[in-house]
Design a protein around this nucleic acid. Sequence first.
DNA 1: GTGATATGCGGAT
DNA 2: TCCGCCTATCACT
Length: 277
Amino acid sequence: MPEGHAIHRLGHQLEQTFGGQKIASTSPQGRFDAHAVDGQEFGSVNVWGKHLVIGFATLAEVVHVHLGIFGRWSISTQPDPPETGTIRWRLLGDGATADLRGPMACELLLPPELDNLVARLGTDPLRSDADGHAAGERIRRSRAPIATLLMDQSVIAGAGNIFRAEVLFRHGIDPFMPGQRIDENDWQRIWDDLAFLMHQAVDRGRIDTVRPHHEPDVMGRPPRVDEHGGEVYVYRRAGMPCLVCGTAVEASVLAGRNLFWCPECQRPGSAEIEPHV
DNA sequence: GTGATATGCGGAT
DNA sequence: TCCGCCTATCACT
């Protein structure tokens, strides 16, 4: 259940594990045409946002994987572990196995289809070609809430529910503020911070957003360590005291997704956007 | 065993 | 704005 940082890590790991190897490919579940890449030489992995794309040395097609909310990779150093659960795609290399379960997409794409996919994605803060300025222009043209825009993959690719909640908190921004009210300088700060947080999450393998001097909350308890293993200000802390001001963190559903924020630290209507903490 | 839940997304309404 | 899909896990009975 990853955001972009986890997909970038996976990309590195798959490349390290299988790069240059002739791989065996099966679909125990039968829902992927795994035979098409069976025996191919594993090439390079490319990631755009939450989309992972595997190329092969002498094949025009690539394999496109999107995990969605349920998908998981498990990579083991066993040569051919027992098949448990529902495995969409099993990749076997020299002494390693990668199993893919429950992805939203696992499919072969031709180059033009890949081009289409990339074209409809916004900029990815984790890529070297990231263009925060373009994302800012999109945001300033929209009346949609900033919390919606940050998760819109055609605006920014790779940020998900945790990063949007946390970056808005760190800048004291009301999540319902329309994109058009965020000026260029404000956006620059948000973008830089988002890129920083995401890069840090790639390095650490977890999302940490709490600044060191906020480590204990106002009740003297340590910040929440979430399921994903990181320390966060508001994500999934509904009803718990804000780590900065003690106000109960609020939650609601926006466009079908849980949204978390501090109603005090992220007060609506505050014209000034300053780095909050 | 059952039900709720999850870091996502696309399509219908 | 809602629904459906894909799967594993965990807190309950």
